[in-house]
Amino acid sequence: MDLRIFTEPQQGASYDDLLRVAKATEDNGFDAFFRSDHFLKMGSASGLPGPTDAWVTLGALARETSRIRLGTLVTAATFRHPSVLAISVAQVDQMSGGRVDFGLGSGWYDAEHEAYGIPMPEIKERFDIYAEQLEIITGLWETPDGETFSFTGKHYQLSDAPALPKPAQSPRPPVIIGGGGKKRTPALAARFADEFNVAFVDAATGAAQFERVDAACREIGRDPSGIIRSAAQVVAVGKDDAEFARRAAAIGRETAEVKQNGLAGTVAEVVDSIGRYREATGITRLYLQVLDLSDLDHLELIASEVARQL
């Protein structure tokens, strides 16, 4: 089981905060450091000192780390033009020596779009944009050296783009797709995904979505086993009940609620929860949503006591 650390910097984190967590992620042997791609806080958090740009952040972290993989869960298709995004991600992949995993979604958070004046089409049009972006970004990366890439769609048109720079990984960085849509999401995953992620859902819901993705793969003649199954869950672990309760309180969650809706409790409880989730869904990769970025001891505990039992 790959364990990855997943952060939500829009809730209030500077680049230096993220750097400390990324280095602790690497030092403690986790597989990857991921971050959300949002520009506005959610809920009652202050959001101070304000948002940080995901790909600017990851480019910097690429030079400050040496082993862990880096990526987003997930970049919104509404935020950036696909050609520009392809260039940015390829550059970060080069800067990291080929350690980027690229998560892309359709976008969903209305409030941040309104706050920053970013257009937020209705869901059907948004999915059309998303599908075109996946074609363009992967097409630019996979175009052979010396050739050009053109695309004609409803929302984007490219004419003889040089398809540069190339990412360090060939033919491209792994693509992560997720979400709960029952038709178009599995179909896009079957075409483009190297990994499919179910986020913050129970095991039965996750298993059903993975089955839809498998069916979509079979429909186009793709082997479903070629797509990694992953999940994201909030995490709050303590050596004992008191330490767990303190960590739950620090992220504004009730102990009973976070146990029901996340990976939470004592070490033994969390190991058991992960085991049951893995058995029910077949996941081989888990993103641990760490919300208190000041508590680096939390990462050390997960690495030393939880990870070794998996």
Rank of each mutant, 00 (worst) to 15 (best):
D2K: 10
T7F: 04
E8G: 10
Q10G: 07
G12I: 12
A13D: 11
Y15A: 08
L19S: 11
R20A: 15
R20G: 09
A22H: 11
T25E: 05
F30G: 07
F34L: 08
D37C: 04
M42I: 13
G43M: 13
S44A: 12
A45S: 14
P49A: 09
P51V: 00
T65V: 01
S66E: 10
I68P: 00
R69M: 03
L85E: 05
I87D: 11
S88I: 14
V92G: 04
G103H: 01
S106G: 02
E112C: 06
A115Q: 10
D128N: 13
D128Q: 13
L134S: 04
G146Y: 01
K166N: 07
P171A: 12
P173C: 05
I176D: 07
K183F: 03
R184M: 15
F196M: 14
A199G: 06
A215D: 13
A216R: 09
R218Q: 08
G221A: 07
D223A: 13
P224N: 07
G226E: 09
A231H: 00
V234G: 06
D240S: 02
R253Y: 07
Q260P: 01
G262Y: 03
D272V: 05
S273T: 03
Y287V: 11
Y287T: 13
L293I: 04
L293Y: 02
D295K: 07
S304V: 11
Q309S: 11
Q309T: 09
